[in-house]
């Protein structure tokens, strides 16, 4: 039965990875940039949620929404200031800039509030256990899973049914052709950063309520793992990020379940190496063929 509980843990953790991975994959899809500052947007979201709950006395959902809005604006700001001027530069220049932005956010937060960790109050979400077929599952894990699924459904709706979603898909497929349709490419890229960052912000608040401890460098490892999840699913492909995230969470908790918990961080990167060797375009990736 412990196995099933580990499975549930894995899915909860995986849904957090999936939420972060979505931002990586969407941004990559549209500007072909691995935004290494994305994990730090997740951290900013966790802190915004923390202050909203402790100082502004908000309950979970208002805090979640506030964190998403702040992160969306933050994401737009980062794109306009750091990445937009480099849009026609080499990809390596943009990548190095992303690493610089990441460090700037991390140590900027430390500069303004110090490096000490904080603890999310334990009573943000009800913490009861639900008994399903003899397995005790914490109501928090179910809650997290539900919120993540709802957010992903909303995302799918935005991407496939709304005008801005269609613009995003068009720009990511062929930016020049999108311009000929009358699509404003700059605004579409901003919207992509906003949505991806909002999801990372939500993941931050969820992470805080579930794992309690937050600190300014908390975004580094989940950020990297979410990147692995995005590559695992096929970078640039939205359903790939969802599946990749869940799969990575599951793999990690299964490794723990089999008694190798010290290996759980390493395993994510072993997965990355294996994927890059054997399936470089990811689980959902396919080579595009052009017709003449």
């Amino acid at each position: 039965m412990e196995f099933v509980q580990q499975l549930v843990n894995g899915i909860s953790l995986g849904s957090i990875y999936a939420l972060i991975a979505l931002g990586y994959t969407m941004v990559y899809g549209i500007v072909k940039l691995i935004n290494f500052a994305h994990g730090d947007v997740f951290m900013v979201g966790a802190f915004v949620g923390f202050y909203a709950i402790t100082i502004l006395d908000m309950s979970f959902f208002p805090a979640l929404i506030l964190a998403m809005v702040v992160c969306a604006l933050f994401g737009i700001l980062v794109e306009r200031i750091a990445y937009k001027p480099l849009r026609n530069a080499t990809r390596i220049a943009a990548l190095i800039t992303a690493i610089g932005v990441s460090l700037l956010i991390e140590y900027g937060v430390i500069y303004f509030r110090g490096a000490q960790p904080e603890a999310y109050p334990g009573d943000v979400l009800p913490t009861s256990s639900i008994d399903i077929f003899g397995v005790a599952i914490s109501s928090q894990s179910l809650f997290i899973l539900t919120i993540s699924i709802v957010l992903m459904v909303i995302l799918q709706f935005i991407v496939h049914k709304t005008k801005i979603g269609k613009a995003m898909r068009a720009v990511s497929f062929d930016a020049e052709a999108a311009r000929l349709m009358g699509i404003n490419v700059d605004n579409t890229i901003s919207a992509t950063f906003a949505i991806g960052s909002a999801l990372a912000g939500a993941a931050g608040v969820i992470f805080g309520t579930y794992y309690i401890k937050i600190e300014p460098l908390m975004g580094v490892l989940p950020g990297l793992k979410a990147f692995v999840a995005a590559v695992l699913g096929g970078i640039g492909i939205i359903p790939g990020a969802m599946v990749g995230g869940l799969l990575l969470g599951l793999i990690e908790s299964l490794v723990s379940a089999f008694g190798y918990s010290l290996w759980r961080d390493a395993v994510a990167f072993v997965v990355l190496i294996l994927i890059l060797i054997f399936l470089p375009s990811g689980l959902f990736g396919k080579n595009r063929r052009e017709k003449v």
Binding site: K166, R169, A170, F173, D174, A177, M181, R288, K291
Partner: peptide, 22 residues
């Protein structure tokens, strides 16, 4: 444009809708 540059990952209908984007 030269080479047509249609949005190959979308349906025919979605391509036409994008033409009327504005």
């Amino acid at each position: 444009p030269e080479g047509r540059r249609i949005f190959a990952n979308m349906s025919v209908e979605e391509n036409l809708e994008l033409g009327a984007f504005l």
